Simulated assay, not measured.
Amino acid sequence: MIINNYIVFEGIDGAGTTTQIKLLAERFPKENVFTTAEPTGSETGKFLRRMLKGEFSVDERTASYLFAADRCEHIYGKCGIIEQTQNGKTVLSDRYFFSSLAYQSVTCGKELPELLNSPFPLPELLFYFKIDPEKSLKRVLSRGGNIEIYEKLDFQKKTAEAYDEVIKLYDGTEKGRGMTVITVDAEKSIEEIAEFIWNCVKNLPIHKA
């Protein structure tokens, strides 16, 4: 299943997805766009964000279940992704289940994340931000503040490799049928990336909806 008018931005920490979603959203009339992110702002998402900050720890398998539960509510819950798109809005999401397939596969293996996320529908368009982990981590560190538990170089390198594998599984394959995957050179300037993304989106039916 494909969720029409649903665009997802994916990439390792520091790849620039959050910045580019904000810039893309500014190109749309406010009443026609809805921006969101995972983990969500729900109670499950708040719990996960505290975990990511290192306030407490859970078994990695538990984390996989929690991410999937948060995602289920994100898609199907009140004011969720499906409801927003049915109301005629284009939804821009910072991360989706591709993140779990990459990050959680590093922590607890591929089998559980694949099982938990297999029922979820695909977005219409996926932007995959590809960047060298060393460069992305420098961006993360430059922000200041606390570093999240996954924001370590060795982990980010493994996650980047896992992301590449995940994208290959969906890009132009039967598994990703109906979804368009576009790889973004996330090492370019913010302005260059923003223009590239807009050129990919501006003539699509989703923008005209």
Results as ranks from 00 to 15, higher is better:
residue 184 V to E: 03
residue 5 N to Y: 10
residue 51 M to H: 12
residue 155 F to D: 12
residue 57 S to K: 10
residue 58 V to D: 04
residue 149 I to P: 07
residue 112 L to T: 13
residue 136 S to L: 03
residue 122 L to P: 03
residue 199 N to P: 04
residue 22 K to M: 11
residue 182 I to Y: 03
residue 161 E to P: 00
residue 8 V to N: 04
residue 110 K to M: 14
residue 192 E to Y: 03
residue 174 E to P: 01
residue 68 A to F: 09
residue 173 T to V: 11
residue 201 V to T: 12
residue 102 A to E: 12
residue 108 C to A: 13
residue 4 N to V: 05
residue 30 K to S: 15
residue 162 A to I: 02
residue 24 L to Q: 13
residue 143 R to D: 09
residue 27 R to Q: 14
residue 129 F to Q: 05
residue 62 T to K: 09
residue 150 Y to M: 12
residue 99 S to R: 10
residue 132 D to K: 08
residue 152 K to N: 13
residue 154 D to I: 11
residue 149 I to L: 15
residue 40 T to V: 07
residue 152 K to G: 06
residue 193 I to M: 09
residue 102 A to H: 07
residue 208 K to T: 10
residue 71 R to V: 04
residue 36 T to W: 03
residue 81 I to E: 05
residue 48 L to R: 09
residue 174 E to R: 07
residue 158 K to C: 07
residue 125 L to D: 04
residue 25 A to V: 02
residue 93 S to E: 10
residue 56 F to V: 01
residue 84 Q to G: 08
residue 56 F to R: 05
residue 141 L to G: 00
residue 49 R to T: 08
residue 128 Y to S: 13
residue 27 R to D: 02
residue 158 K to P: 03
residue 16 G to M: 10
residue 24 L to K: 01
residue 193 I to D: 08
residue 173 T to G: 11
residue 199 N to E: 15
residue 95 R to H: 05
residue 107 T to E: 15
residue 12 I to M: 13
residue 129 F to D: 00
residue 115 L to S: 06
residue 106 V to E: 15
residue 45 G to S: 14
residue 91 V to N: 11
residue 124 E to W: 03
residue 85 T to F: 10
residue 122 L to Y: 01
residue 11 G to F: 02
residue 29 P to M: 07
residue 95 R to L: 08
residue 148 E to N: 14
residue 207 H to A: 13
residue 29 P to W: 04
residue 174 E to T: 06
residue 195 E to F: 04
residue 6 Y to S: 04
residue 198 W to I: 03
residue 173 T to I: 13
residue 139 R to Y: 05
residue 150 Y to V: 03
residue 173 T to R: 13
residue 74 H to E: 06
residue 181 V to N: 00
residue 90 T to V: 15
residue 71 R to D: 06
residue 5 N to I: 02
residue 196 F to N: 06
residue 84 Q to T: 01
residue 196 F to Q: 14
residue 70 D to S: 08
residue 31 E to N: 12
residue 110 K to I: 11
residue 55 E to Q: 08
residue 42 S to P: 07
